[in-house]
Structure formats: structure tokens, C-alpha cells
Amino acid sequence: MEKRGVRKGASFPISPSSILPALPFLLIFGFFFLFPISRLIYVSFMSNENTFTLGNFQTAFEKPYNSGFVNSIKLGLLSAAITAIPGAVAAYFIETRGSSRLKRTISSMNGVLANTGGVPLAFMFTSALGIQGFLTQALKAVGIDLYANSFSLGTFTGLLIVYLYFQLPLMIIVFSPAISSLRREWVEAATNLGANNLQYWLRIGIPLLLPSFLASFLLLFASGFSAYATANALTVGNVPLTPLQIGGLLDGNVSAAQLNLGKALGVVMIVISACAVIPYLLIQRRVARWQTR
């Protein structure tokens, strides 16, 4: 590693062939990230007696944990599916029609909404959509009685609604770069070559945006699938979701016959999340080819 680490003539300190400058990063990253993740994977294959077993994974796919996965995947998919197109359209108009100041304001607001949501978001909705909440009352005034059908934010539907609130801003954030990478030259060249608006979109615009759209969808799925804070604040164990089940096992709430079940659930989550995030990263990298040129 060290020998091929650096090309000849590199002019950074100490000895040019050393990886010393990257060492603090590698050590901290290794210790605080790679180590716990590897250990998690290792322990997930351990029985209570510290022998190798697949039993944890077996249990992970049985009741009630299997429905946790199903619900979490459904929540991730639905919240992504509902927000992807509106988010993409909003991103399109903001990026193409907005002033740079507007773009900056919206992108930082989205940053707040998408990242620091969590618990405050849950309480915000609790008050807005509670029985006495303003939104509930307003909806009732126009003839929609949320509570007629025993609605509660602590249900799958309730969570889905709240999730939209951070998924939509996330979609706008993730998809905007793709929009801004559409060059004006391409529309103009297409027009000049005789394409009308529709033909431009069908032959050039949509094919160019599609990979980024799919990538954004995958990232949204991963975000909805693994979200913990909001669900934890809104539900009381009535909606089985994998992150909550893992949290419960971690707190020792369940007198589990298998001490390492939570680790196996975590590993399965990593695998599912990786199935979405890795293609996302690969597509982003591919798309960067024409985004930077």
C-alpha cells in the first residue's frame, strides 16, 4: 500500500512515499466507524455462548421482526414515491426560474427541514394534527374529520404524513444539482436542430435527468427506511418498524433469548440500505461525468 500510495515527485511533507498525513483520518475513521461496523457484523453471527450461529438471522426474519422490515420498507418506498415527483418538479422550477438568492434561501431552509427535523418535527405535527390542533380544526371546518376514522399520528399513515415533511425537502436538495447541470446549450442546440419543447424533453431532458431521479429516489428510500427519531417520538410500539425494534432490543426492553438479535437486525438494515445507497452513489458518479464538463 505504501509503495504505490504516492506518485513520484509528490511534494508533501516528511517523506513523499508515506501515508502519514492521512493517518489521523484513517485511524479515527477506522476506530470510530469501521471497527464498530465490523464488530457489529461479527457479533451478529454469535450465539449467546459466543459460538458461530445463523440463528439470529433466522429469528430476524420471523415474527414480529419480519413485519418490521416489511413496514419499514413500505414506509421508505411510499414516502419516497409520494415526494419524488413533486420534489423534482419543485426543484426544476426553483433551479431554472429562481434568482440565486432564492435558490440559496430555499436550499438552506431545506437543509434545516431535512436534517434537523426529527423530534421537533414530531412535536410540531402532534400539535398541528392533534385533536385540538389548528390543522385538525381547519380540516374539520371544511368537512374532513381526521378523527372520525380513529386517525392518529402514531399509525403507519400518520408516520407517512410526517415523513413527507422531511422527504420533500430532501428530494429538492438531492435533485437540484441534476437540474442545474442541464446546460442551456442543450435546449438551444435541440431547438436549433429543429426539436420542439416536447421532443427536447423526450430525447434529451428526461434521459439526462432520469438517472439522477432514480438515484434521488433510492436515497429517499434509504432515508425513510432508516429514520428513527420521528417514529420513536410518535409511536408507542404499535407500528412495528425495524429501527424501533432495534432501539428496543438495545435498551434491553425485550428479554431476548438471543442477546445478539439486535445486531442481526442491524446487519439486515445495513444490507437493505446498501442496496439503495450504493446504486445511488454509483449513479451519482456516472452522472458527474457530464455534470462537471
Partner: peptide, 8 residues
């Protein structure tokens, strides 16, 4: 520059 359609 860069007016060629990158997907074609």
C-alpha cells in the same frame, strides 16, 4: 463548447 447531447 459542450453543446453535444451527452446521452447520445
Amino acid at each position: 463548447a459542450y453543446s453535444l447531447f451527452p446521452n447520445l
